[in-house]
Design a binder for these strands. Sequence first.
DNA 1: CGGTATTTTGATTTAGCTCAACAGACGTGG
DNA 2: CCACGTCTGTTGAGCTAAATCAAAATACCG
Lengths: 248, 248
Amino acid sequence: MSERRETPLRSEEIEADHCSVDVRLEKLGMVPFFKPLSEEDLKEVNRRFRARHFDRGDVIYREGEAAALLRIVVAGKVKLIRPTLEGQDVLIDILSPGEYFGSLPSMGDEVYQDTAIAQTKSCVLSVGIDAFRKILNQYPQIAVKVLEFTSDRLAKAQEKIKQLRTFSVEERIAYLLHKLSKKFGEQSDEGLLIQMPLSRRELADMVGTTPETASRIISKFKDKGWLETGRQWIAITDQEALLSMGDE
Amino acid sequence: MSERRETPLRSEEIEADHCSVDVRLEKLGMVPFFKPLSEEDLKEVNRRFRARHFDRGDVIYREGEAAALLRIVVAGKVKLIRPTLEGQDVLIDILSPGEYFGSLPSMGDEVYQDTAIAQTKSCVLSVGIDAFRKILNQYPQIAVKVLEFTSDRLAKAQEKIKQLRTFSVEERIAYLLHKLSKKFGEQSDEGLLIQMPLSRRELADMVGTTPETASRIISKFKDKGWLETGRQWIAITDQEALLSMGDE
DNA sequence: CGGTATTTTGATTTAGCTCAACAGACGTGG
DNA sequence: CCACGTCTGTTGAGCTAAATCAAAATACCG
């Protein structure tokens, strides 16, 4: 039953040159924000960005720091958390390539409200907030795109608030796993593997519970044959069952 | 102790002509979105809006309807809710004049995610979503402004998620009352009155609890001399005490 | 003054948290 | 390649905040 097993997670192989100037332009073009731009404009915009590499666990910025940069994930995964006093952070989101984070032109505090940490080796682009503001004014289509993304995130946040009220922890976890497998899932021997290191604590922080409760529920799902798990990984084997438990 | 008392709430006196074409332009100029516009442009933009009046309790739109319009509160108060299956709605926000609601240019469903209800007599402006998109492309400054508002709301929503996890119901209610009194408070004989009909159920829906629990906590606060209440109204008498209980 | 919706209060139940101990997985250094 | 140490995950037992169910009291309107 419990023969020795290696983690099925693929360790991200992001070489240094993934972040080099050479490949940057190509990547930037893939970012949904910049889809509407011409080749010409894209090059122009590209010049204003800087690229930087982060290793797993690196803090990209911390809550409370002056919010000076807007960033875009180019490769890897980045998690956003809101730290609380007793370390039981709230995990806001996990971002994949093409998604933005950091500060947007804002009305209120010019300080980050959250903390960003590289969940895997990652490459991240950044622009100063003023430079970005200029870009927005120069290319209205981009502003509209950014607005779309932001209002989409707002809708998701509101949905989450509703879920916290309405659903049990069990339902929330089922729903979350379903979502994660849609966003990060890859077929593997174990089933639909969520391709990312993911601890019980992180899982708990995402649905608003404790690692213990998360563990109990995961065990229950495992008993029912809905998924396979190991240290830091989860693979869904019965998507349907999860869905029927956690659907809206 | 319990001498006969009239509700201290001022019933909103919004006459029909508050929504008339005549006053509309003036109102529109006060909307933060449109601050950056010249007199000229404002007139131009104004032409694309329609105004409409709603009475207390009127449904402005329902979750699930085709999301065709963006709206702006010009007078009165509008509440946004996410209905759940068993009527214990989640109250997302209460909007005052100058705030937008309805749909933004979005990527996903072209369907309202929430339900909007007039909390008091209200006047609301609306534009078709395509017309609004045109405005955004035409006046990039507006797009940036709208983005600011939206990302601000996003930050608030995330803060709320954190609160739901971290704070007790008692702390959340204290914090909410503090916020509401800042946004809607008016000095009155009873103290800093939250100028808006507000039931225990609505209060509960805002912090994610039940009317019973909300009532118990309000009673407790009343006993401590922090506030005065009646049917559908609350007035804060000791702001400091509330703050020290519900601060972040 | 009476009627009704809202609010309050009481009693009971329960989901999920906390504290605690243990077991399994992974990495490292010998 | 194996033994050891550490970090992650599992499981158990008891506790508590808040939900639920039920009823009485009250505030406000006409």
